[in-house]
Structure formats: C-alpha cells, structure tokens
C-alpha cells in the first residue's frame, strides 16, 4: 500500500494519530502531524512511497507540531520533534514542509551510522551511480533534478548512503529540494513534474520540493554500484568544462563531505578508497543545463 492509496481523510487521520509508517529507502519513519501543509506535501510528493500498517519497528519517530501560547495566533510556528524532543528552534508555520524535509535529513545524518553518509546528490544509469558532492550554491540539486527529469534514476538529491561492506549505494529517493532561481528553471523546463508549495524567506531563501519520479520510488530497494564521482559547479556564462579530477583529491573531498567518517573510522576509509578506485573522477563547470546533460549522457555511454 502506497501513500496514494490512502484518501485524504485516511492520510490525515493516520498523520494526526501518529500512525503513518512511511518507508523511504532503507528507513521507516513514524510520522505525526496535524499541520495541513505537511499533510498536503506528503500526499503530493510522497504519493508513490509505501506505507505500513502498525509496523513493528520504525527507525525514526518524528512529529511536527504547533507550539502553544499566544504566538500560535499572531505569528504561528512549527516545531520538529524527534523522539519527543526538539533538536531545532521553531520555524514559521509556512515553512513546515521544508522543516519536515530538513528534519528527515537530520534523522539520517545523525542516526544511520550503519551506513556511510555523504552530503551528495546521487543518480544512476545502467546500474552505475553518479555521485555529486558539492557545497551549497554549486548547482548540485538543480543538476540532479534535471538529470532525473531526463531519464537518470534518483537515488538522493542530498544524501549518498553507502554500505561500508559492499560499497553499494542505497537509494533514498525523497523529494528533491530546489532553491530560489532553480525552482523556476525546473518548473519551466519540465512543466509536467509536480513541485510542492514554495516556502519563502527560509534560511536558504525560497525553497520548494520536486516530486521524485515514480520509477525511482518504485525501485528504491535497488542498490547501485559507484560509477563516477563528479564535482559540479554552476558558473554563469561559463563554457562547459568536464575535467578529470585527481583521485587522491577526490578521496579527500569525499571524506570532507562525509557526515560520519570519524564515527566509522577505518571501514569508512577503506570503503571510500574502493569507491574512488571503482569510479571515474571529474569536475564539471557549467552554465547551460542542456550542455551539461548532453555531456553527462556521453560520459555514461563512454564509461560503460
């Protein structure tokens, strides 16, 4: 049973009662909220994800609530709760769905130490994963959204989840976070793709989330072997430049983008070293999404 199999009333009831067990990639989250914008966001953007009745175990128990008090009436806010406590300060109520997404990322980053977790977008074609670590503002999510809208499978726009034992990447194909100008870029290029409500004036500017493709969600248990590590950088007016990147520097950067490298220690070092061994390593500077997509498709053909 998927989210889309629930009618609005049933979904709202489950969320209100805290009995929506949502399966995203390797994780099951128990979600509770009465906030309508979060309910609407889940209905739209998580439509294809499985839900479980009375799951015996949930990895994360999360809730989004409105703080009590006068503020509730003149400047409403939202709290994110994990196991009943609030790891963050409250945000304006209009940012509730964005807070849900950030909170879900936080859960994985801080608790999923069975896996090596990197800050990177991951897409897949032909069974090989393209891993794109990049700092904020580098155009990672925009490129990721365009790639999945062009036929690549989404594994994640934000978190590369790697099994330290097998070196394979686990999908976590949750909605793709878009910021500021990239929202209209993707909306204009791909008018058929659903994008959720915009949250204005967040710490990251205007934020909206793109619905992940159904195929990516349906194959969220299908892992991928590493194929390429790509460091993308959007620079307005620049010519397309795809250059080989030093493997040693690639390993250093991957470690720098790992959330739990020091938690896992040597297995993480060995895992990332193998990943670099098995991958083509590149930097990409681009200003035209069309050119970048075309070049990366050729990369896929020439490397396989």
């Amino acid at each position: 049973m998927n989210v889309s199999d629930l009618d609005d009333a049933d979904l709202a009831r489950r969320l209100r009662q805290g009995c929506l067990f949502l399966e995203t990639g390797p994780f099951i989250s128990r979600i509770q909220t009465s906030i309508e914008s979060v309910q609407a966001g889940i209905a739209l953007l998580y439509a294809g994800f499985p839900v479980h009745d009375n799951a015996p175990f949930a990895d994360f128990h999360v809730a989004l609530t409105r703080p009590a008090g006068l503020r509730r009436w003149f400047r409403p806010q939202v709290n994110f709760l994990f196991d009943g406590w609030t790891p963050f300060k409250p945000l304006p109520l209009e940012q509730a769905f964005a807070m849900f997404e950030w909170g879900m990322n936080w859960c994985v980053v801080n608790h999923a130490h069975k896996y090596l977790v990197l800050h990177a977008a991951v897409v897949e074609k032909g069974g090989r994963a393209l891993i794109m670590p990049a700092p904020p503002g580098a155009g990672k999510s925009t490129l990721c959204a365009a790639l999945v809208a062009s036929g690549w499978r989404l594994l994640s726009d934000e978190l590369a989840i790697i099994s330290p034992d097998s070196g394979q990447l686990l999908p976590l194909p949750r909605p793709v976070g878009l910021k500021n100008a990239s929202i209209d870029v993707i909306r204009t290029r791909y008018p058929d793709i659903a994008i959720g409500q915009e949250a204005l004036d967040t710490a990251k500017g205007t934020v909206a989330h793109m619905k992940p493709p159904g195929d990516s969600v349906a194959s969220q248990q299908l892992m991928a072997m590493p194929g390429w590590v790509l460091f993308p950088r959007y620079r307005e007016g620049s010519a397309l430049a795809l250059e080989p990147f030093s493997r040693a520097a690639t390993l250093s950067r991957l470690v720098g983008n790992a959330f739990n490298f020091t938690v896992l220690g040597r297995p993480a070092f060995e895992c990332l070293s193998r990943l670099v061994d098995d991958s083509g390593c590149y930097s990409l500077e681009y200003s035209s999404l069309d050119e970048a997509l075309e070049r990366l498709d050729k990369l896929e053909v020439s490397a396989s």
Binding site: R247, A248, S252, V255, F261, G265, F269, S273
Partner: peptide
C-alpha cells in the same frame, strides 16, 4: 600511530586512524 595509505598517480592520502583525520 595507526596509519593507512592510498596512492594514485604520485599523490597519497594518509589516514591517521588514531585521530580520524586524513592528510593529502
């Protein structure tokens, strides 16, 4: 000191397991 090495094309990444740090 527990040291682990990886080398590619004359560049080395050293993992110092005691501190958890790597050095290029």
């Amino acid at each position: 000191a527990r040291l682990h090495w990886r080398e590619w094309d004359g560049e080395v990444v050293l993992f110092h397991e005691n501190s958890g740090n790597i050095h290029h």
